[in-house]
Simulated assay, not measured.
Amino acid sequence: MSKPRSLALPPRTRSLRLATARGSFAVLDTAPDGPRQGTVLLLPGYTGSKEDFLELLGPLTEAGYRAVAVDGRGQHETPGPRGRAAYRRKALALDVVAQAAALGDGPVHLLGHSFGGLVARAAAGLAPDAFMSLTLLASGPGRVARPQRIRIRALRAAFALLPKERVWRATRWLDSRGEEPGAGDPPELVAFLRRRWMLTRIAQLAGAGRLLLADPDGTAALRALPMPLHLAYGDEETVWPVPDLAAAATRTGAHHTVVAGAGHSPNVSHPRELAERLAGFWDAVPGRIEVPIGGNPAEAPS
């Protein structure tokens, strides 16, 4: 989970519902103030939401990219079914393909943070023509580190035994490492985090945890994707082992970004540096689009 530093919407950001062939999804849609270099669809991680990208949206649009962050099905402000089948990998991936189509900008750049990277990988494999590139942010093609696997198992077991409010309190206590829960967080942020937790479907949280625990090594599938690939993470990443991420970048031939001093959420801790590195990668993607204000997509000059 990423924890936003501020809940203020960046300039030119609309909070709206994106109507797709697979339902309506809550999104934050931020437009650049000038010619558009392309569009990026941002998928949040486990227990997270579209607000995880609030600090990143502004810098991305300053670089010329329309940035759209989405709540997946059952996540925060997007409703979702209660049944387990709704949160299987293919169902979530098909949602992303539908979201990309509904944006109306042709192929988009796809970025998945943490668990969102698992979904993004599946979507890119299902419909490669829908995406210009794939970026895995703090997300690997292999298994999460052992402490995270233990945490996910404990969380899934807690949902079967305790009310959601009790699980929230226990999670907050663990996150504070035994300090007073919420110490140092402004009240409006604590209220947001609780609201996000309570709105997110238990089936979504349980299903995402199940997928993270069962995720096979996807290195070969990544290498086979017919699109540019980018692996980005902080050098203090904790959810995936850093050596595994570096090895995956080498094995797949991916563009490789390591953000110095960043942990699991460079999108929050280092948004401007990350945006610069992301835009540099996207700018070099062959066939990228450039859209004048009020114009139609066209191939950028070579």
Rank of each mutant, 00 (worst) to 15 (best):
V144I: 04
V144L: 00
A145G: 09
A145P: 09
A145E: 08
P147A: 01
Q148G: 09
R149P: 14
R149C: 05
R149D: 10
I150C: 03
I150T: 08
R151H: 10
R151A: 08
R151S: 11
R153K: 06
R156S: 11
A157D: 14
A157F: 04
A157T: 12
A158E: 13
A160V: 11
L161G: 14
P163Q: 08
P163M: 02
E165V: 11
R166P: 10
V167M: 00
W168K: 03
W168Q: 05
A170L: 04
R172V: 04
R172K: 04
L174C: 05
R177F: 11
R177I: 06
G178Y: 06
E180W: 00
E180C: 02
P181A: 06
G182K: 07
G184M: 06
D185R: 07
P186T: 06
E188A: 07
L189Q: 09
L189G: 09
V190P: 15
A191V: 11
A191G: 13
L193M: 13
R194L: 08
R194T: 15
R194G: 09
W197C: 05
W197R: 01
W197A: 08
M198G: 10
R201I: 02
I202P: 15
A203Y: 11
Q204E: 13
Q204K: 05
L205D: 15
